[in-house]
Design a protein around this nucleic acid. Structure first.
Length: 313
DNA sequence: CTCCAGAACA
DNA sequence: TGTTCTGGAG
């Protein structure tokens, strides 16, 4: 028994197959034979990888592709982005329907950190990368592996689904991290992380396509054997229509068209049923704007006793 | 209605 | 640990 086994516990890798090497080789071979082509798979520039990863959070890859190209045309380097007006970056985000405008501010802030704290040269370790605003465990490992072929195994919803179905890994973050790391071949994080996420996106999606996609793990997959393709629970989101986040999006999009706007001018453009004293009135809008200001998206000031909002520059 | 390469904040 | 953050597509 190795030290790693003792540390992890006796049954930590009980779910993994006997011939781990064969399973690894099969996936890498499957990935390298044929996979989807994305522009960010053609680069090892950490800035480009970070842009792609932040855009990809909770957003379909197909929609990311056009935005990714346009973004890099507008701000080709991390220095360009750090020097940009925040309002322009947020404006770009909404124009390209990327959602979660917060992420535009994260990316802008992170670019400033790279320039200020690291003299323009990206850190290479997951721990250092996580110091960047908006970079958590997943994104840190993604940048470390895709840019530097380092870091640990990435764990996202795709990887969790694959590990749970194929090897019956229990639905807990620590179990997923451990299994993913044990499965990943040393020194091949770039290819491996791409491959296992590709598997989750192409062959082992919510609706499995094992035979159509020629899944390389059919011979050792528990789900394929038993027919039980249950996937880990992904928390269901509340409906978008009429939600607070829909209203936030409308505020940002409206302010994009104006230098600044007073409450009663902004309100009707956010909700048709806006009425200064009503349920959806000044108090409601002020509360919404206050959160947007806390998130660094909007600036508020007083003019002639009235509140005026604009995108933060 | 659901899904989608997560992270910040309380 | 739970809650919040967008919006397009099927």
């Amino acid at each position: 028994m190795t030290d790693a086994d003792a540390e992890a516990g006796p049954d930590a890798d009980a779910a993994l197959p006997e011939d781990v090497d064969a399973v690894r080789a099969a996936l890498v071979e499957w990935y390298e034979a044929d996979h989807r082509s994305f522009p960010w798979r053609e680069t090892t520039d950490p800035y480009r990888i970070l842009v792609c990863e932040v855009m990809s959070q909770q957003t379909q890859l197909e929609r990311v592709e056009a935005a990714y190209r346009a973004f890099l045309e507008a701000w080709p380097t991390v220095e360009d982005l750090a020097a940009a007006d925040r309002a322009d970056v947020v404006g770009f985000w909404t124009d390209h329907r990327l959602g979660y405008n917060n992420r535009a501010t994260y990316l802008h802030t992170a670019a400033g950190q790279v320039v200020e704290d690291y003299d323009g040269a990206f850190p290479e370790t997951p721990d250092e990368l996580q110091e960047l605003h908006g970079v958590g465990p997943y994104t840190a490992n993604a940048v470390a592996s895709f840019a530097f072929n380092g870091g640990n195994a990435v764990v996202d919803t795709n990887v969790k689904r694959v590990l749970h179905r194929a090897f019956d890994v229990e639905d807990s973050d620590s179990a997923f991290e451990e299994a993913a790391q044990r499965l990943m071949p040393d020194g091949e994080s770039r290819t491996w992380n791409n491959a296992i996420m590709e598997l989750g996106g192409v062959a082992c999606g919510k609706v499995p396509r094992c035979d159509e996609a020629g899944c390389p793990w059919r011979g050792s997959c528990r789900a394929y054997e038993t027919g039980d393709f249950t996937a880990p629970d992904v928390p269901t989101q509340p409906s978008f229509e009429g939600s607070r986040r829909q209203m936030r999006g409308r505020v940002v999009r409206t302010l994009r068209e104006y230098d600044d706007l007073a409450l009663d001018a902004l309100g009707p453009r956010v909700r048709v049923d806006y009425a200064p004293g009503g349920t959806f009135g000044r108090a409601w809008l002020r509360d919404l704007l206050s959160d947007l200001a806390d998130d660094g998206l909007v600036e508020l000031d007083e003019r002639d006793g009235d509140t005026v909002a604009r995108l933060r520059r």
